[in-house]
Simulated scan of single mutants.
Amino acid sequence: MLNRHVSIFIGGTLISLGLNLFLTPHRLLDGGVIGLALILRYLWGVKTGLAIILLSLPIFSAVWLFDRRMLLNSFYGMLVSSLLIDVLSPLQGTVQSPVLFGALFGGLLVGTGVGLMLRFGTSTGGTDLLAQLIADRFHWNAGILIFVIDAAIIGSGSFILEAVQLFHTFLVISAVGLSTSLCLRKEPESA
């Protein structure tokens, strides 16, 4: 059985590999704070992990009021995944893949990383943390909430994407939402 620290490291590594090997080389977006950080990277060259940390701070401040345990676990998850994203950024361009494969496989890696972290009570912070807080309060599926938030952010960031990139970016968030939801799916209880 995985413990929280191992799940954070594995989840952060999967997210980092998905971004660095598959999404960034094709200038694709994810949703949420990661998507906003990628927009900053594509526009001004800001380090993705650093941007995630800075963009997540206001959300962490708001969550502090509702669930401090979730906040502390997620802050740790956000720091680990953000550092891994920047540490592994030299891997960008080492895998040559068609954009369709990059969108789908990158999305599956990112979503599995996010889902693994959510399954163990942590997240990468940002809108994942917000979705997890809402899901816990209203008993909704966090993966579906993440998908809705991601679609809204990508829609607002579409000004930097060409039509082909926008199409593939929606494939990314679909793959992220699917793999996150599968990771969070409850196992049927055996009799």
Rank of each mutant, 00 (worst) to 15 (best):
N73A: 14
S74D: 06
F75Y: 11
Y76I: 15
G77A: 05
G77R: 00
M78N: 10
M78Y: 01
L79S: 06
S82T: 09
D86I: 10
D86R: 04
D86G: 10
V87T: 12
V87E: 13
L88F: 11
L88R: 01
S89L: 07
G93R: 06
G93T: 11
Q96M: 00
S97K: 01
F101L: 15
L104S: 10
L104C: 07
L104K: 03
G106H: 05
L108Y: 01
L108P: 02
L109R: 09
L109P: 01
L109A: 01
L109Y: 03
V110E: 04
G111I: 07
G111F: 04
T112K: 06
G113D: 10
L116A: 10
L116N: 06
L118T: 10
R119D: 08
R119N: 07
T122W: 07
S123H: 00
S123E: 00
T124K: 03
G126C: 05
T127Y: 11
T127V: 12
D128T: 08
L129R: 02
L130H: 07
L130M: 15
Q132I: 10
I134M: 14
I134C: 11
A135G: 11
D136V: 00
H139T: 03
H139F: 03
W140C: 15
N141H: 15
N141V: 14
A142L: 14
A142K: 12
L145P: 13
F147R: 13
V148C: 15
V148D: 12
